[in-house]
Write a protein that binds this DNA or RNA. Structure first.
Lengths: 213, 213
DNA sequence: ATAACATTGTTATTTTATTAACAAGTAACG
DNA sequence: CGTTACTTGTTAATAAAATAACAATGTTAT
């Protein structure tokens, strides 16, 4: 079967990433086959949703036996990963930046954080969880040298726009922005924003609603 | 006008939180009125979306003058905030937990992080950015004593399920889960999950697509 | 005063995402 | 073998979100 080159729905991509994580755990436990309702239960979604996602990537399970865990993991890998992997830089090595570096460190993955950047001279040329921290000034240089295609922005909000601009100029292909400042980037750079404060305010709103305050 | 007590769409709630943040900046700059297309531009969405959101909260602007910044901020506050505010606890005072505490510290807001929890004896009874860190064992006690209604989970993934269960038992009303482990909580606790690894894998997928790899 | 324009508020349409429905087919069991 | 029950794959229906369309109306220019 040929892997469809059509772009998958946003939400399906997210779920595939999550499925894979849990499938790897299943595989490590020696589980060889898995039913759609088992995957569903792990993620608190419906079995139909799982089957639909799997249909979209063109995989087929075995009737009454479920999906082959290993095959499914491999196929998700073919879809999400690139052969040589992509290299990632973290701009802003504060608590959040270091936490991200920590998450990825040691995980065998096609995504690797290969550089950190910070303005603080105390941090420059230090190594955090195996990742070298460079000065902001070297952003362009290191991105080119290290072949970095994704940038994670974890600087204070007021520096975000400036950093984003420099990243785009340096030829970055994708940005994950953790600052609350919405960014303006050229349309051929993929931008994903995540705002922690908004997440928390959203929880608060629904708590308030539920409590009838 | 009476504020509708109907629950707003998920996405509208998120955007309102973001609008407010930028409106506060506008107000600080002395801007008194703002057009839908200006708000839209700040957030890279369409003016229609903005008008629609504002319609949903029952506010009206002035034709050809736009919206009164102060009034809009106040109304969003009435919708998102509770009168006395909600109190938040952070479970897991690692890099990510401290980063969240740092974000909220000093921001005048109806949401305040009032306690941290960790198992590490080096952290217990220390104060991080004004927030006291307690031992896990005191979770229930402190949640009750400090009247905490929202918990942010930033522990390692393998402890997440256990922490969530304890939070629910302690009577928490809302949970924001930053671990990649999907949680099972009783349906009257509002749960929001955010998975950083998935976010990054999603960026990678779209970068890959765009590059045609 | 009148015309041209800008901007809101709202309804209608389209798109995207989720859920339901069900046909098909295979393993297990007698 | 034949029957039962389960699980997949897919199409159809529904729900949620975004976008488009446009009427209403105040403002500015002439």
């Amino acid at each position: 079967m040929v892997i469809s080159s059509k772009t998958l729905p946003d939400k399906t991509v997210e779920r595939l990433s999550q499925y894979r994580r849990n499938l790897l755990i299943c595989l490590a436990k020696g589980k060889q086959h898995i039913f759609s309702h088992e995957i569903a239960q792990l993620h608190h979604i419906t079995p139909v949703q799982v089957r639909r996602d799997i249909m979209l990537i063109g995989y087929s399970g075995t009737l009454r036996k479920g999906y082959d865990v290993k095959e499914l993991i491999d196929l998700i890998g073919k879809i999400l990963d690139t052969d040589e992997g992509l290299r990632v830089g973290v701009i802003g090595v504060g608590n959040l930046g270091r936490s991200l570096i920590g998450y990825f460190n040691g995980k065998r993955s096609k995504l690797s954080i290969v550089a950190g950047f910070d303005a603080n001279p105390d941090k420059v040329d230090k190594v955090y969880a195996g990742v070298h921290c460079y000065h902001f000034d070297k952003l362009s240089e290191i991105i080119a040298r290290e072949n970095i295609s994704i940038g994670i922005i974890t600087v204070p909000a007021e520096q975000a726009a400036d950093v984003a601009e420099k990243l785009v100029i340096a030829g970055i292909k994708g940005i994950l922005n953790f600052t609350p400042k919405p960014l303006n980037v050229s349309p051929h750079v993929y931008l994903q924003e995540y705002d922690m404060v908004t997440s928390l305010e959203k929880v608060a709103y629904f708590v308030k609603k539920q409590a009838g305050i």
